[in-house]
Nucleic acid binder design. Structure first.
Lengths: 130, 130
DNA sequence: TTGCTATTACGAAAGCTTTCGTATAATATT
DNA sequence: AATATTATACGAAAGCTTTCGTAATAGCAA
């Protein structure tokens, strides 16, 4: 626990984590079906299985092997991971300028009034010193 | 030119693009030195050379071979590329929710008053319908 | 029981990116 | 001119991730 855990899921692993984060503990079959519903390219069942097994090895996921159908669950926190990946992304793509990125995101995205209000509220909160 | 160009630079390529975007047309030597000043791990000269040659092949960069020392320049637009990568990132990491990501970014980042003002101005602009 | 289907396990191939060694050539130095 | 330095070219190895074929097994159905 003292050693810093470097979270660096691969693309496939991240896709699988998204399913686990969204749906909770799941079987390989469920994850594979979900991925195939969404994505364009068909992913083979054993491919998903293999990656999930690797994720268990890496402790990105934990699995319950009591039943024949193993149940996998995310073993990394969603917000934590997002925060970590966000930092990396900002560094590598926006040379560390989170603000530049936020401006891009706001400019590109068609934000709703409600969303904009939320952001304004957050800004107010920050300005008041958290 | 009609076909859509899929921009998917690798990590190394992106690091090099950052140097080219920031400093403009550069030699391999300069790029390699710059990368090595910043980063922790030493990158071999021929490694950088190779990747930049590949980037020229992929048309991520163009190069001038008039002189013995070739000069490379980015051949993809910075904002365009950032926008593209941002979309991918939001999709894969925040399940498409740009707002969720913006909130994370604002929450994590110690934004200055000036930066917050900029964002507020942008929001006002968006609310007035661009 | 006898087969049929679903699941895990495993290894290896395929596909990418990164790294490096070596050869060759151009330029600079002495 | 001879030598040293610097640059490009190229191929191949190393390292990862993804994909798939195959085997073994458990559970279900006829």
């Amino acid at each position: 626990m003292t050693a810093k855990n470097i979270i660096k899921p691969t693309e496939s692993e991240l896709e699988i984590l998204q399913v686990l984060w969204e749906h909770g503990p799941s079987s390989v079959r469920f994850v594979n079906d979900t991925l195939n519903e969404k994505g364009t390219k068909e992913i083979g069942y054993t491919t998903t299985l293999k990656i999930m097994q690797i994720m268990a090895e890496k402790n990105l996921a934990k699995r319950n092997t009591d039943k024949r159908t193993h149940i996998y669950d995310a073993n990394v926190n969603e917000s934590h991971t997002q925060k970590h990946l966000l930092k990396n992304f900002v560094d590598s793509t926006f040379r560390g300028s989170a603000m530049k990125m936020v401006m891009q995101a706001l400019g590109n995205h068609n934000a709703s009034e409600k969303e904009l209000d939320e952001i304004k509220a957050l800004i107010t909160k920050i300005e008041k010193g958290e």
